[in-house]
Write a protein that binds this DNA or RNA. Structure first.
Lengths: 195, 195
DNA sequence: TCCTTCGCATACTGTCGGTATGTGAAAAGT
DNA sequence: ACTTTTCACATACCGACAGTATGCGAAGGA
């Protein structure tokens, strides 16, 4: 095993255990010694790969965000013949489903803004899934499907609505809640559409 | 000065300084010694009034939530002759404006869920302003102004949309952003209304 | 006036994020 | 082939901070 391979392997293992522990215990509930020992290394190795606890969390968060973003993009690509409107809908539904998963809930929705600050959190969100949302809205404004308006505030409203709905869904146990939340969100979207 | 007066005075002073520091530096950026010395007491006094740092933060958060809830209620009461629909709109606008203030932003929107957990945060939100929102939605469903549907997921969607919009507004500097965000939110509300 | 209560201070401990330094093996140079 | 350098990690340590145990002095009741 060459050195660069060993390095990557250790780094991946650290990220895997960090994500697992951050997701189950929350950022404040996990110590760096705990992450290191779960990985089978010491804290020295951790600080060789990451500059701080927040930095490690940031990389984990970026990874989670990227997965959610990929899920959204995959859902949109899955039906290439659909129009922009239906691509927005399927993308939003994919985002809602993905955000309900426990890792995403704790790391991205709860701890993310508090640990990294809202500005940095937003930058990661923008790079991962927010970008897709704004692009979709721009297309819809351009083709006249929704009112001419600045897309950034509208994107924030929709994103915040889905985030909060995902937090609520992850807490609730009734299976029908997902359908109810999606129906309500879909009604909201439909209300934006010019008849 | 009687003992009970002295106690209340110290407690209020602690809460005042804690709120100020939590709002400016964030929960993780403030130490209990810092709060105590800013108040002019020692950490012993702090632990005599609050069981933990999270407990102190929880009381501060409840106070902030109550202020926001009062602002929403006051805005609705300010125009008693308006119908339920316009009362919802003015309430939402009051919430959006109040949530943009720095204290509310940092304490209620960013640190709140991470420090207390989402369930407890939601309970405080429900008691303060979420209740008003759900009651308004129930009235609107009952009178047929919006579609028959479960109000809880819809309330979560609207609440999350406003929270995220408030975070975005507090970051941005253009004065027109508030108008844009409100216009977008108002369009969303209007879309829910049965013609 | 004595005793109890209690609001708060003082002094201490354990944990944890972060740093400084050591070490042995892999890679590079000659 | 031998030396030197690099580097991935371990070990040992420090400071900060949340939390605790205890002491004290004044208020309030008996």
């Amino acid at each position: 095993m060459t050195r660069i391979e060993q390095r990557e392997q250790t780094r991946r293992a650290l990220l895997r255990e960090a994500r697992r522990l951050f997701a189950t215990l929350g950022y404040g509930g996990v110590g760096l010694d705990q992450i290191a020992s779960a990985t089978g290394v010491t804290k020295g190795a951790l600080y060789h790969h990451f500059t701080s606890k927040a930095d490690l969390f940031g990389v984990v968060l970026a990874q989670v965000q990227a997965e959610v973003g990929d899920a959204v993009a995959a859902a949109a690509v899955a039906e290439p013949e659909a129009d922009h409107w239906d691509q927005l809908r399927t993308g939003c539904r994919a985002f809602l489903v993905a955000s309900t998963h426990p890792d995403v809930r704790q790391i991205m929705l709860i701890d993310g803004p508090a640990v990294l600050g809202w500005a940095q959190w937003r930058a990661l969100d923008e790079a991962a899934s927010g970008r897709h949302l704004e692009e979709a809205l721009i297309s819809l404004v351009a083709e006249g499907t929704i009112d001419q308006q600045p897309v950034t505030p509208l994107g924030r409203l929709l994103s915040g609505a889905m985030n909060e709905a995902a937090l609520w869904l992850a807490e609730s146990s009734r299976p029908s809640d997902l359908d109810d939340a999606w129906a309500a969100f879909d009604r909201m979207l439909e209300g934006l559409r010019i008849p």
